[in-house]
Design a protein around this nucleic acid. Sequence first.
DNA 1: CGTTGATGTTTGATCGGCCTAACTGGTGGA
DNA 2: TCCACCAGTTAGGCCGATCAAACATCAACG
Lengths: 225, 225
Amino acid sequence: MSLTARVEDYLEAVLDIEMSGEVATVTQLAKNLGVTKATVTAALKKLDESRLLVHERYGDVILTPEGREKALAVYRRHEFLADFFTRILGFSRERAHNVACVMEHEIDENTERRLAAFTDALALAERNNETWLKELRECMDSPNELPIPLCLMEEGSSGVIARVTAQYELRKRLNAAGFSPGVDISDIRKSDGLPGGVFTFVMNGMGIKFGIAEASAVWLYQPDK
Amino acid sequence: MSLTARVEDYLEAVLDIEMSGEVATVTQLAKNLGVTKATVTAALKKLDESRLLVHERYGDVILTPEGREKALAVYRRHEFLADFFTRILGFSRERAHNVACVMEHEIDENTERRLAAFTDALALAERNNETWLKELRECMDSPNELPIPLCLMEEGSSGVIARVTAQYELRKRLNAAGFSPGVDISDIRKSDGLPGGVFTFVMNGMGIKFGIAEASAVWLYQPDK
DNA sequence: CGTTGATGTTTGATCGGCCTAACTGGTGGA
DNA sequence: TCCACCAGTTAGGCCGATCAAACATCAACG
């Protein structure tokens, strides 16, 4: 009987109103969630049936203990995520909340804890005025171009490595082979062979062959465009 | 004519198949997206009508230039987000992709750039074996309890500050007043007064009054539970 | 008390995304 | 050649979330 994301939103909204000291009303919920009152009534009916809140006809909206617990979990995730995206990543307030709104339904407690620990550690660094954090911030304020994966580069084109999105062994292999941001790549070509094709190019004067796995993990800035 | 999130998913899936060197088929798409072929046919019809790909009856599925561009943008976001959540935050592969799947539709280019810059800076630190990064990692591996906001604490209870989720002036004020992780708070009480209530408690032997804004930004670990 | 305005509910409809079941088209053996 | 099989399509229906419009209830005031 797992809740839909939207139903979690309604729970969260009820808690939000409750926290501000009022009793949640249909009108208030409709306003906060940006839907009509009819929609709220329908949603509350479902939540009442699931015993997450009590809502009698024309009556108050009151969270049950289970409902309150679920609502708090969602609310907490939302606040932590929004905090993370604004304070650490510098998203706009609005965007941070949008992102938090969709992510809050996709993470579990464990994930939430990791995220919180990360945020807290960076917040601590901020209080201590750590220099590395400042460098990091500056780096984030000078926006780059957006790269494209090697496997989508045009025949014969060149580029500069932007990043490598790979984990584990593949990442190690690529690292060991010298695939790091800033390195030039030229004469990119694709030929048939392995499923997915074979990609050849030149790096540091050497000819190199890639399969699709490598070629989609290495992202390049295009020189002109 | 903004695309729905789901439609973006279909575009992304087509690009994904194309990148692996094959031509996207209905069956392949159905498999990758976890839906039936009937559903794919319907989605492709819409995408064809929007001129994002070409799909004639019983024909191949080919992205148009605009479709390819949109697909790449979504794909790139997905890969960057997944990379960020696995490499930097240590999410499981599966969870990282789930989260990426919902977030990829909520961020714009600017936001994507910030995120990428952040990831890249941390990846650089990782290559350099920076000590602060290692500390941060250790911190993330020792999971904490999950806190609750001061305004939801029980009458008369106590706790330890876990974090402060506030920005700008409010954050500064709370910081200046000594609200930092680890500080003890006791004798929390709520009374009427301002809209949202007035919260009183004791910190460092001093009695303090909060409105709802402050009381929902300060998160506490409960001592027992 | 009765009227009135705000609050809440019901009804009937749409829309996107999905499914099952039945159908059509294309193709490679026997 | 024709049949069997796989790929793709169509038709019809379901579900969740939403809306507009009409209706019901409440509360407060004269």
